[in-house]
Amino acid sequence: MTLLIVALFGACVGSFTNVVVWRLPRQESVVVPGSHCPRCGHAIRWHDNLPVIGWLLLGGRCRDCGAGISWRYPAVELASALLWLSALSVQAGGGLSEPWRPWAGLVLVALLLPLVLIDIDHLWLPEPLCRWGMVLGLLFSAGAGWTVLGDHLVAAALALVLLEGLSGMAERILGQPALGLGDAKLAALGGAWLGAAGIAVAMALGTLVGAVVGSVGRVSGRLQPRQAFAFGPFIALGIWLVWLRGADWWWEQWQRLLGF
C-alpha cells in the first residue's frame, strides 16, 4: 500500500512537472490558469487529467479539438512515479539520519526532474529552481547536525566556484564555455545535498556518462563538432545515483571495475 501511494503521488507530481516544464521557460504562472489545451484553450477535465490513465483513455488527443497530446506527458508522469519509488531504496542520503532520507529524496527528485527536462528542451537551467534546491538541501542538512551542514555548505560553494572557473578558463582557451553557468548552479545544488565527497563523485559519474553519450552523438552525426548539448541531465543523474548509494559505494565499484 505504501508503494502504491508513493507511486500515485509521484505520478501526480510528474503531472505538475509537465506544467512547470512548459510554462516556466515561457515566464508563465505555473498555477494560473489551470491545465488547458495549448491549441484550443479548453480547460482539461479532472478525469482527463489523471496521470497516465487520462492520456490513455483519450487516445492521446484533446477531447475538445482532437489535437494530439504528446506521449511525453504520460512518460514524464510514469518516470516521476518510478523515481519516487526509487527514493524509498536510499542507502546513503547525503549523511541525513535514516528516517529523513526517503522523504528528503522525494523533494530532491521533484527538483531534479524539471531541471533535466527544461535543460533538454532549452539548454537552460532555471536559476530559481537551482537556488531553492540548494536552500532546501542545506535545510535538510542542518537537521543532521552542524558537521554535515558545514560540509554541505562548503561543497555547494566550492562546486559553484570551481565549475564557473572551469567554464571561464575554457572560454579563454577554446573560445566558448565548456559548461553553462546553470551547470555550476546545479552542481552547487548537488553539493548542498551530498557534501564534498558526494558531489565530487556525482560530477565524475555525470562527466563519464556525458562523455560516452556525447561521443556516440558525434560519431553518429547527431551532434556536430563544437555543438552544445545539455549537460545538466548527466549532473542530475550523478547526484541521484550518489544520493541513493553514496560516494563510497560508487568508489568501490570503480575500483572493482579497474581490478584494484
Rank of each mutant, 00 (worst) to 15 (best):
V109L: 13
G93Y: 11
V109C: 10
L57H: 07
W103K: 07
S97L: 15
R72M: 13
H122K: 01
H122F: 07
L117V: 07
V161M: 13
Q91R: 15
V109S: 04
L112G: 00
D151I: 07
L117S: 04
L136T: 15
A75R: 07
L125C: 03
F140E: 03
L108T: 00
L123R: 12
G150N: 12
G95K: 08
L57S: 11
P126M: 08
P126S: 10
L85Y: 06
S86I: 09
H42R: 14
Y73C: 07
L139R: 12
S89D: 13
L111G: 03
L83A: 09
G150M: 14
A75W: 06
L160A: 15
F140T: 05
A157F: 09
R63N: 10
A142F: 14
F140C: 11
Y73G: 05
M134T: 15
I120N: 00
P99K: 13
C62A: 04
S141A: 15
L56G: 09
G137V: 04
R72G: 06
L138E: 00
L160I: 07
L50M: 11
L129W: 00
G95W: 09
S80D: 02
A81S: 15
V154G: 07
A110T: 15
L158G: 09
H42M: 09
E77R: 07
C62P: 05
S70P: 06
A79R: 06
G93V: 10
A104M: 03
G137K: 04
P114S: 03
P51I: 03
H42D: 11
D119C: 06
V148L: 12
I120K: 00
L115I: 01
W132E: 09
G94L: 11
L106W: 15
G59A: 04
P38W: 01
A156Q: 02
H152K: 15
V52I: 13
A79P: 01
I53P: 03
L108C: 01
L153Q: 10
A92M: 10
A159N: 02
V116P: 02
R39Q: 14
L78F: 11
M134A: 15
S141M: 06
R101Y: 08
V52T: 01
Q91G: 15
G66Y: 01
P102R: 12
G54E: 10
G41A: 09
V154D: 06
I120Y: 05
L83P: 00
A67K: 06
H42I: 02
G60H: 02
G137C: 05
H42P: 00
I120A: 03
P74L: 11
M134R: 09
R72V: 13
P102L: 08
E77Y: 03
W103N: 07
W55G: 13
